[in-house]
């Protein structure tokens, strides 16, 4: 049976990491074996007592001691309450849930495209690649509106030393790259020739990046996107996170692009109008 009751979670610490965003460290009370099986791209339900539960992704998955990190942007009641908490306060935790990113580092050349807060669900995967010195296999293009909208400042410093990492801003100052990640696709494809795309950010960015990648020769079945949906249960029961006949909390939030298109009944060219956001 599914357990719908949260486990106890301790707020260890947090620091500002991007506009209206904080980087949290948590500790799960009495971590269990399945906590260690958490994959990058999966999510957890965070309970803020008195307010409710909401889904967030891991920046780093739980370790042996149940410690993990999450980047959370202030968005509404629940995050307002969370941002007002102090180290040592008690929260609730359920997870891990959903499907993470596929792991297939060996023969693939992976392009990671992230927009704004969409970098967070990819952090665990980028970390792994940079630790394993897979610089020839994985490169990142990260877009944000302005530099204050960028998140994971400390991680990006580290990653930039290990793997090809392009940052681009809608509002760029002199000396910075300007535009969306898509504006740099020709250059990226000419240099690293990726055959796989992992993308997370506003839906319009993901669909745009997916379409452009198909035009650059990537198979739709080698593209993964991470969809955001309202989620209340995380376990396929409350119904809120539906995408066609699938529930994002079970079959996603990471979807293979061709499957996502089949689910929404959309083709490459008509998906976008139905799916604008952010």
């Amino acid at each position: 049976m599914i357990d719908l009751t949260p486990r106890k979670l301790h707020l260890l610490d947090s620091y500002e990491d991007g506009r209206d965003a904080r980087h949290f460290s948590f500790r799960i009370d009495f971590p269990q074996a399945h906590d260690l099986a958490t994959m990058p791209g999966q999510f957890f339900m965070l309970a803020v007592p008195g307010v409710g539960e909401a889904p967030f992704t891991y920046v780093s998955p739980p370790n042996l001691y149940g410690h993990f990190n999450a980047l959370i942007r202030r968005m509404g009641n629940l995050t307002d309450a969370l941002f007002a908490l102090r180290p040592g306060d008690t929260l609730g935790y359920r997870g891990p849930f959903g499907k993470g990113w596929p792991l297939f580092f060996s023969p693939r050349r992976v392009l990671v495209v992230a927009g704004g807060c969409g970098l967070a669900p990819l952090a665990g995967l980028i970390d792994e690649a940079s630790r394993e010195h897979l610089s020839s296999r994985l490169s990142v293009v990260y877009g944000a509106r302005r530099d204050e909208d960028q998140i994971l400042a400390r991680e990006r410093l580290r990653w930039k030393l290990a793997i090809p990492f392009i940052e681009t801003l809608d509002d760029a100052a002199a000396g910075q790259r300007r535009g969306t990640p898509l504006d740099h696709f020709d250059e990226v494809f000419a240099t690293v020739q990726p055959d796989t795309l992992l993308c997370c950010g506003p839906e319009s960015l993901m669909l745009g990046a997916a379409r452009a990648s198909v035009e650059h020769g990537i198979q739709p079945s080698r593209i993964w996107v991470s969809l955001e949906r309202r989620m209340h249960c995380g376990v396929g029961l409350c119904g809120h996170c539906y995408i066609g006949a699938s529930y994002a909390c079970l079959d996603g939030p990471t979807y293979r692009y061709d499957r996502f298109l089949a689910l929404t009944g959309a083709t490459d060219s008509c998906a976008a109008p139905a799916l604008q956001r952010c």
Binding site: E228, R229, G239, H240, C241, Y242, R277, C278
Partner: peptide, 17 residues
């Protein structure tokens, strides 16, 4: 709850699929 309610899928960000 009801999937016919306008806010059924509305996210904290304001996005409503």
């Amino acid at each position: 709850d009801s999937c016919l309610y306008e806010g059924f899928q509305a996210e904290a960000s304001g996005h409503n699929p």
